[in-house]
């Protein structure tokens, strides 16, 4: 079990002295409006951005100092930008997730391909294994990339909007899957109700700063939604599960327009 400890991490003016902990086996959600620094924080963790100050420690090892290969053996992610210029099949793409564990001249073994197929099964697109990746829909691509992160066999999974482009059914499946991998997870999520349902703790970012943290029911309050997101909302316990359910109210400007007519 792996612990991620982010200490006073800053990147230019997009992220300011963020502190964050993902305890072993925990699923931690990162929420906040667009431009609040969620992606920046994640990228500093998985290594495609170099933080201007502060550090991110994985079980005490500085992720920056680790080098891309050693880092990729312990941290997996689903990148937001992915190229579709060349026609790798879905299975070939997913099998590339084994790369950090192999010597660079090694090909894919039968075990690697079996692993890729098993991962495709878990995300529900095994039937697409032999199809060219560029021909997939947005949601299918997203699931293929999640499968690739699974075969990477990480200790920490860092996902930026993993439910993007997904139908609601697969949003629930992907998040449920992530929770049951036994990895420590750090997820940036847009949907606050989903974040509340699937995360053990949430961190709220606003203009690059962490402004709140804690269990979802403590963090997701009408007051916080008003100050951070600028929206009026009711938060109530889900009638079946008890996790916070965020219900938005129509915004005041719309009402004013109506009354002026």
């Amino acid at each position: 079990m792996t612990e991620l400890r982010v200490e006073a991490l800053s990147f230019e003016d997009r992220l300011r002295e963020a502190d964050l902990v993902v305890r072993p086996g925990e699923t931690v959600g990162l929420v906040g409006p667009n431009g609040s620094g969620k992606t920046t924080l994640l990228r500093c963790v998985y290594g495609t951005l170099a933080a201007t100050s502060g550090r991110a420690l994985l079980d005490g090892d500085d992720l920056r100092a680790m080098g891309p290969r050693a880092r990729a053996r312990r941290v997996a992610t689903v990148p937001q930008e992915s190229s579709a210029e060349f026609e790798l099949t879905v299975r070939e793409l997913v099998a590339l997730g084994r790369s950090p564990h192999k010597r660079f001249w090694e090909g894919d073994s039968a075990a690697d391909l079996a692993r890729a197929d098993a991962a495709l099964d878990r995300v529900g697109i095994r039937h697409l294994a032999d199809r060219p990746y560029p021909g997939l829909s947005g949601g299918e691509r997203q699931r293929a990339l999640v499968a690739r992160a699974l075969v990477q066999d990480p200790a920490l999974l860092v996902l930026d909007e993993p439910t993007n482009h997904l139908d609601i059914r697969y949003q629930l499946e992907v998040l449920g899957l992530v929770r049951h991998l036994g990895t420590s997870n750090l997820l940036a999520l847009h949907d606050l109700t989903l974040a509340g349902a699937y995360c053990d703790r949430l961190y709220v970012l606003e203009r690059g700063r962490v402004v709140a943290e804690g269990p979802p029911q403590d963090v997701l309050t009408p007051g916080l939604l008003r100050t951070v997101y600028g929206v009026e909302a009711e938060v109530m316990p889900h009638p079946r599960t008890g996790t916070p359910l965020v219900v938005y109210l129509p915004s005041p400007p719309a009402e004013r327009k109506l009354s002026a007519m």
Partner: peptide, 23 residues
Amino acid sequence: LTLARPLDLLLTGEEGATVLGLD
């Protein structure tokens, strides 16, 4: 030919190759 794997990684995009361990 010995670099076939990293070349494949590049096909998946700059960020994709980096997060799979390629400098």
